[in-house]
Structures are given as structure tokens and as C-alpha cells.
Write a protein that binds this DNA or RNA. Structure first.
Lengths: 208, 208
DNA sequence: GAACTGCCATACGCCACCGTACGGGACGTC
DNA sequence: GACGTCCCGTACGGTGGCGTATGGCAGTTC
């Protein structure tokens, strides 16, 4: 490792020594934010840890604390990316003209997207965190309003539309959590398709 | 010189009644398990930490490691209590004769019980833990089968009954998580009752 | 009343992570 | 080719939790 001798750091100067970061030499703040968001999808808020992240980026804390004040501000930056993604997603949905098709596609996406695609569930778990809580609430509220407006276009009154959006959110969150924690309990294989259709029918075009 | 006790201590079950704890009497394994389960309801798996728990029990780690091998075995003991509670709950439900009333009561309970009453959601969050995962799956599977059997009595075929039970579980889990993380988004006050009725109608006596 | 045992206190080492201090290399600028 | 700025490496100290080692007291037992 090293000894207590403070001066001379003798680094063997003939080593290749840089396979860790291909291409780019220096990291940007956005690189860190992106990596943090990715880690969050995979391992929750706890996976957004400075030292492990540095390791996986092939660098050290020195880089991190150059770009960020502390861990919370990294979380903040990562979540800001997520907010932008969420807005984009809604904008894309808005471009689908037929409201029925729009609802169907959105619902289907919510229940078939890969397991870590959306981190709402993860964030709900850590909502007590002072950075997470407010952002999560803001995004979720916007999504609910978006969903409710969309449902109103299908002919439902406002209160029923909000209830419907809330139910969709609840189901999405619930299924995401079960998929993460106990996927064996969910229908697999061919049953799965039938189950998705069942949910789509339960939530989809609200006719009640 | 010392009793080289390497493993667990299982005490005989004829111990005298304990006044919970504040009487400055000695603590039992059950006291620890109970406190652990309580902490888990309040703060998740992370709150089951030896030193903080010892502090809140007015004792030290010395006590803990007398009764338990390590933290995991405490988690195990706490969850075994939870398994027993779950069985009791189902047995109690079984005693309600009318299947319709039974379903209604169970559903209503699931959506109105105090926030930390059931830890299924908490455990789903930590399902990757080697002790939590298996116990959670076992309990949840039993509950799903229980719910499905109950639904069959209402006249549904087996597959639809399972789907129905799964949907009820999903909604329960989803609502529990939202209630914990973003309760502002759920209907409050008088709207809340209407929302519960809406859910009961959505899930309740399945007539489809 | 001595020994034994059940239960606990305390001190210790370890590990993972946070944040700081500081030095130093790389690279453009003059 | 000296210099300043950007970016990073490394050591250090601090915190919180896990598990161990060991001592000790309070009852019980003989």
C-alpha cells in the first residue's frame, strides 16, 4: 500500500495505467449525474454512493468533490435529469392523436417496460429524503394531472378521471414493487400476456 | 474458563411473565424480537439495527449478542412473529361466515388500517435480503391463495380468482407505498371515504 | 458462603462511507 | 518555457453500524 513517507510519490512511469476511462479523459458533472441516475435505477438511493460510483467510473472522490458540493447535490442533479425525462415522455404521449390509443399505449408501457425503467417506486421508498420528497411529489402530481386530463378526453368527469389516474398510478407502483421483490408471484410466460390484458381492461378505457 | 458459547441461545418457554421492560428486569429474546418488529414497522429494515435498538430498550449490545447470534437472526425472529400474526389474521377472517361480508371486511381493512400495520410493502422493498425474501414469498403466497380461495367462493373460476387476489394485493401494496411516500396525492378527508368506496367497488364483489 | 450461571456493560477492532486538505499533473496562454 | 486553471489522486479524520472479547454483578444452588 503505502508508508508514512510524505514526499516522493514514485509512480512507475512505464505503466499503461489508463484502461478505466476509454476515450474521454476528464469527467463532466453530467457524467456523474447520469451515472448516479443509472445507479439509482439499479440499486436504489443507497447505490448513489460517492466512493463506489467513483470506482465504477474509474476515478476517485477527488473528481466528484470537484463537480459537486456533496452527495445530496448529486442526487439533486440526477433527479433533475429524471424530471426532464418525465416531461419528455409526456410530450411524446401528447403527440399521439387518438386519445384511446394514447391511453392504451401509456398503460401498456407502464406495465411492460423493463424493471428499472421508471424510478417512481424507488423514490417513493425514499420519499423521506429532503431532496427526493419534493421532486417526487412535483413529478407525480404533474403525471397525475396529465393522466387525469387525458382521461377526461375519454369522456369522464373530472373527479372520476383523477380517481382513474390515481388507480393507474397505484397499480403501476404496486406491480413494479412486486416485480422487484417477488416476481415469482406474478404470472409468467403466456399467463403474463393474459394478465397484462386483464389489467388493461381493468384500467384501460374506463366505461363505468 | 468461559462458556465458549458460539451459537444461539434458545431459552425454555416456561419463563415468567415480563413487564415489557421498564421494571428494570432482564430482557428476553422475545422482547428483542418484538422491538425489532416494531422498529421495522416504523423505519423499515434499516431501523432494525442492534445498537440503536439496544439504546431504545435501555440496554446495550451485550444483551443482544447474548440472545442472538447476529443481526440476521434477529430479523428472522421478528419475521417469525409476523408470520404468526398473518396466520392469525387469516384464521380470524375464516370465522366470518358470509363470504361477501368477509371479502368486504378484508378489503376495507387493507385500505384503512393504520399506515404501518402490515409490513408487506416494507419487506418487498428489502426482498433481496436473504432472510426477508423467502419468508416474504411464503407469506404472500399463502395470502394470495387464501384470497383466491375466498374469491372462488364468490363464484369465480380459479384463474380469475387468482388474478383478482393479485390485483387486490397490488393495490394494497401500491396504496401503502403512496401513503408512506406521498400521502398528499391521495384523497383526504371526505374525498377519502369516496375513494375507499370506489376501490371497494373496483375490487370488492367481483361480478364480471 | 462459595461456586456456578444467566444476563449485561464496556472496550475494542473492523468496515463502508462521507467530506476535507492538499498536492500535482495536463494543457492552454502569454 | 513559465504560469495559471482545470481536474484529479491520495491521505486524513469523522461517523455509524457490526461483531468479539472479556469482565462483572445478581441470583440460585449446594
Amino acid at each position: 500500500m503505502r508508508n508514512g513517507v510524505p514526499s516522493e510519490r514514485v509512480q512507475s512511469d512505464d505503466e499503461p495505467e489508463r484502461p478505466a476511462r476509454p476515450g474521454r479523459r476528464t469527467l463532466s458533472r453530467e457524467d456523474w449525474a447520469r451515472a448516479a441516475l443509472e445507479a439509482m435505477r439499479g440499486g436504489g438511493l443507497g447505490a448513489v454512493a460517492v466512493e463506489p460510483l467513483a470506482e465504477s467510473l474509474g476515478t476517485t472522490k477527488g473528481s466528484f468533490y470537484w463537480h459537486f458540493k456533496d452527495r445530496d447535490s448529486l442526487i439533486q442533479a440526477a433527479l433533475e435529469r429524471w424530471v426532464a425525462e418525465s416531461e419528455e415522455l409526456m410530450a411524446a404521449a401528447e403527440r399521439i392523436e387518438d386519445p384511446v390509443e394514447r391511453g392504451r399505449r401509456l398503460t401498456e408501457y407502464a406495465f411492460t417496460a423493463p424493471s428499472g425503467a421508471d424510478i417512481t417506486t424507488t423514490l417513493l421508498i425514499h420519499a423521506e429524503h429532503p431532496v427526493v420528497g419534493p421532486i417526487l411529489e412535483q413529478v407525480t402530481r404533474r403525471r397525475l394531472e396529465f393522466g387525469a386530463r387525458l382521461t377526461e378526453e375519454l369522456g369522464l368527469p373530472a373527479d372520476a378521471a383523477y380517481r382513474h389516474a390515481l388507480t393507474a398510478l397505484t397499480m403501476t407502483v404496486g406491480i413494479a414493487l412486486i416485480r422487484r421483490g417477488a416476481p415469482q408471484l406474478l404470472p409468467q410466460g403466456e399467463d403474463k400476456d393474459a394478465y397484462v390484458r386483464y389489467i388493461l381492461e381493468l384500467l384501460g378505457p374506463p366505461m363505468r
